[in-house]
Structure formats: C-alpha cells, structure tokens
C-alpha cells in the first residue's frame, strides 16, 4: 500500500468536487475490494475521499412506484429490507448469494457495482494484464480462464464482472444516479453503466472522472416469480461460474446472467423465446469460449432449465 492522503466529505457534491480537484483519488466506502487492491498495489490512489458519512444510506419509495436505494446502503441491509424482499426478491437473493456475512455488512450498493474483476492475473502484478496495466497484454487469454468470460470479450481482456447484485439490478432495469463536481446530476441506465472491455478494459464504467454514485433507482416492481440461481464451485463464498437472475410472470419473462461477461449480461431478444435451448442459443450467440470455459454454455442451458422449472 502506497502512502495516501485522506479526507472526509460531508455532501455528495463536495465529494465530487474533492475528486475533481485531485485526479489520482478514489472514493472509499466499505473498502472491501479497494483496500485489498491497495495492499497489493493494484490500485495506488494518492488520495482517498471517505464518503461513509454522506446522507446516502436510505431506501425510499419513488413517486412512480419504484425504489431509490442510497449508494451507501450496506448489502446486508438491502437484502433484509422489507420492500426489497417483498417486491424485488431477486435482488435480495442475489445479494445473499454474494460474499460472506462480514463482507456484506461492510459492502455498499455503489461499491458493489464498482468492484473489480477476480481474474487471477489482474491480482498478480508480476503478470501482464491490460486492465491493470494498459498495453501489457492479457495473460488470461492463453492461460487459466475456466472462470472467465465467454461473451463480449476482446483480444485485450476476457475478465468477468464478479457482482451478483449487479446482475439483479440489470434484470430490474435499474438506473444509476450520480453527481459531478459541478453539482450536475444524471441517471445512467444500468445497461449502459458497465462497459465491455474492447481495447480499453481498464475503463469499466460510464462514470466520468470524479463522478460519484449517489443512488440506484429501481422502477416499479415486476410481477412474477423471482429467482436468482448462482452456480459455483462450493456452497458459499465463491464467485459465480455462471448465475441466472430471472423473473417469470404473467407479463413475460426476463433473464440476466452473471459469470458470462465483463458486465451483467442480458439479451432482451432472447426473452421472447421459449425453452432453455432457444434462450441459451440466443443469449450465447457469438460466444468465444476456451477449452476451459466452454462448459459455461451447456451449464447455462441446464441452469436455465432448472430456473424455468422452479419458476
């Protein structure tokens, strides 16, 4: 960990202004990912802006029947929230499928969206990684990639996004509210929030420098059976090989997937199809697999089958 300076922000706009004033800064909330990365010097911010005291820790209904989740709402609290459990059960289940109780107690809603990949080469500073060090190459492409992405990959990066929560947010058509240094706010549809790697895998989100997430807003609840099915190598405390978030109800079905891509993966066109075979074929159209991770396609089909049977 490199030495850094630290200050505490008291309003979101102030936090964004602080970040704009110091380009090599990072916001810190729960710190469950950032601190580990700093210890390994994968992240080397010169300045930390502590946003934990900001007034962003409430879950409130919106005027149009949705829900506004403050950026600092802890994963544990969000998963246990009565409205979330009743109306957005898929989100609660996705949250509880992630990490461990201790981590969920610290991890925040915004921080969860921003967590970095678990690609092992990203974590090893002795190895090439375009995400960690642009232009250095991708060690995962010809290396150990059983857990890595098959959709939306590039020659530069095949990392996955590790979040379970974000997959449910994508399913629910959430939007990410932000504030910038000049006080301007905007709402970014979650579909546009996370980026595919392309030639710039180090750019992971649509956030502009210094822009601070203040909330995630969910539209009105979607009727139907909510399912989150995470498939992993042990019963708990492991990242998804694949995951399926689904709502199956009277007005149709929708699916979003984790473990497939650099972002939560959703193919709306596939949702009009029926049966796991057709949906999987549509969702994985254009997949680029390796001998190690090709199993993700049949695994996805089979898991979808289980989800549809359960729903």
């Amino acid at each position: 960990m490199k030495p850094f300076t630290y200050e505490r922000a008291s309003t979101p706009a102030e936090a964004a202004a602080m970040a704009a004033a110091k380009p090599a800064s990072r916001f810190i909330a729960g710190g469950t990912n950032l601190l580990d990365l700093m210890k390994l010097q994968i992240e080397t911010p010169q300045h930390l802006i502590d946003v934990n005291r900001l007034d962003l820790d409430r879950v409130e209904p919106t005027k149009d029947g949705g829900l506004r989740i403050g950026a600092l709402v802890r994963n544990t609290d969000l998963a246990a929230n009565k409205i979330v459990r009743r109306d957005y059960a898929v989100l609660s289940r996705a949250l509880l499928a992630g990490a461990s109780g201790q981590l969920r107690n610290k991890a925040t809603t915004a921080g969860n969206l921003l967590q970095r990949t678990r690609c092992p080469y990203f974590y090893d500073t002795t190895k090439p990684c375009n995400k960690r060090k642009p232009g250095s190459g991708c060690a995962a492409l010809g290396g150990i990639n059983r857990g890595l992405a098959i959709m939306g990959t590039s020659e530069a990066c095949i990392a996955t996004h590790p979040s379970d929560m974000a997959v449910a947010m994508r399913l629910l058509d959430a939007s990410v509210e932000t504030v910038s240094a000049d006080g301007a706010t905007r709402a970014i549809p979650i579909a546009d929030f996370h980026q595919l790697p392309g030639k710039t895998p180090h750019i992971e989100t649509a956030l502009r420098p210094g822009e601070l997430i203040t909330a995630v807003t969910l539209p009105a609840p979607i009727e139907g059976r909510h399912v989150y099915r995470k498939v992993r190598d042990r019963a708990s405390y492991a990242f998804a090989l694949i995951s399926v978030a689904a709502i199956v109800g009277p007005k149709g079905q929708r699916f979003a997937f984790g473990g497939l891509a650099h972002k939560p993966w959703r193919v709306e066109a596939a949702e009009k199809l029926s049966g796991p075979d057709a949906i999987t074929a549509s969702v994985t159209l254009g997949a680029k697999t390796t001998p190690q991770n090709a199993f993700k396609i049949p695994l996805l089909r089979r898991t979808l089958g289980a989800v549809l049977a359960e729903a």
């Binding site: 092992p120 190598d233 405390y237 492991a238």
Partner: peptide, 29 residues
C-alpha cells in the same frame, strides 16, 4: 471436490494463490 493449485505452465507458478481462489470447504459444504 475443490482443492487444486492451478499451474500456469507458461509462467511456472500456481495461479490461484489466495483463499478466495484456492477453495477449501466452507461450513455450508
């Protein structure tokens, strides 16, 4: 079911060198 130090035969080392990626059973297992 899960324990494996995965060898990257290009670089010659065990890739999954932390407890997040070298899996041992958790209580739920």
């Amino acid at each position: 079911l899960m324990e494996e130090l995965i060898v990257d035969t290009r670089f010659g080392y065990f890739v999954n060198h932390d407890m997040a990626e070298y899996h041992v059973p958790v209580h739920a297992d």
